[in-house]
């Protein structure tokens, strides 16, 4: 506002027209005749009243702004470099020394675990693979490795060129990769109990029967020969279970969910057989045959799932 007032004042007294206003008049005139001039940095209108100051300021601003900073730096000269002294103990606040988690771990009821202890102590104490060491862990690891070797040895045998079991597949290129896939498949089968991904799902029944029979016969022969030669093979159960050649030991009957625990429900009538009656009566003492009741009842009764 002051500048506006000043302007009005200057307009009244035509003699003291300011430099800036004169510039503006010239500029307007020039722009009316030619094209607009590029914008110039406007100087502070408050300083504009003072003629001398305007001169110096304009020249400073246009050339390099650093000096004007230093000029008005007189006001902010007390802004000094902050000095932090780490050597004296006064800067430490004793109450906020530990982080919350660290404090909790330290002040818990357990002895504090030193970070170095777990990392450095087991390293010299446990040489990881010393086959001579008769430790429980190494024995178990060796046992596992042996079982693996036994269960996968037939794959290896079929791929060894000089072997009796060697097949034509052994001479094909990339046979080793196939061996790796088969080994992985075997391990997955033993772990997850899933079917092999190499089994073909849909095929004529006669063909499937033939394949199974051949596989069984080959396995039997392998076992027989191994037995004759005194070679220890893997446990047969793991193979047979997966092949589903043997029927389960006890077929599980499907029971209705609402079937009664005792007797048989037919229509709306609960029929108790003689055996059921004996089982119920014999719960306290002995039944007619002389066996203990509850055990008999439990054995004779079909279990509800």
């Amino acid at each position: 506002m002051a500048s506006v007032l000043g302007k009005r004042k200057s307009r009244n007294t035509e003699l003291s027209i300011s430099e800036e206003e004169a510039q503006a008049i010239f500029r307007r005139h020039f722009e009316a005749q030619f094209k607009p001039l590029p914008e110039q940095p406007k100087s502070n209108p408050q300083i504009a009243d003072d003629d001398l100051a305007t001169d110096t300021d304009e020249s400073d601003d246009s050339e390099w702004g650093g000096i004007s900073d230093e000029d008005d730096g007189d006001g902010s000269s007390e802004q000094s470099v902050e000095v932090i002294d780490h050597t004296s103990s006064n800067t430490h606040d004793p109450t906020v020394s530990m982080s919350k988690r660290e404090l909790k771990a330290f002040m818990s009821s357990r002895p504090p675990s030193t970070d170095t202890t777990p990392s450095s102590v087991p390293a010299p104490a446990e040489p990881p693979s010393d086959p001579e060491d008769e430790d429980e862990r190494t024995l178990r690891a060796q046992d596992l490795a042996l079982q693996r070797l036994l269960s996968e040895s037939h794959l290896l045998a079929s791929l060894t060129p000089g072997s009796v079991h060697s097949t034509a597949a052994a001479h094909k290129p990339f046979a080793a990769g196939r061996l790796r896939h088969k080994t992985t498949d075997l391990r997955i089968q033993s772990l997850a109990g899933a079917d092999s991904i190499y089994d073909q799902k849909k095929m004529p029944m006669a063909m499937r029967k033939r394949i199974l029979a051949t596989r069984q016969a080959r396995d039997d022969k392998r076992r027989r020969e191994a037995k004759e030669n005194g070679i220890i093979l893997e446990h047969p159960s793991s193979i047979n279970k997966n092949k589903k050649t043997l029927a389960p030991a006890r077929p599980r009957r499907d029971q209705a969910v609402d079937a009664p625990a005792v007797g048989r429900l037919k229509g709306a009538q609960l029929r108790l057989s003689e055996r059921d009656v004996r089982a119920i009566e014999g719960s306290g003492g002995r039944d007619s045959v002389g066996r203990v009741g509850p055990g008999r009842a439990g054995a004779g009764k079909r279990g509800r799932r």
Binding site: T87, S89, P94, S97, E102, L103, F106, M107
Partner: peptide
């Protein structure tokens, strides 16, 4: 008292070790 004890102990130990934490209870 906790803070004062810790303060005095740190005055002695601070120049010797950088990792000092004392809990107050």
């Amino acid at each position: 008292n906790n803070g004062r004890m810790i303060y005095a102990a740190r005055e002695v130990l601070n120049p010797l070790s950088s990792d000092i934490h004392v809990a107050a209870q």
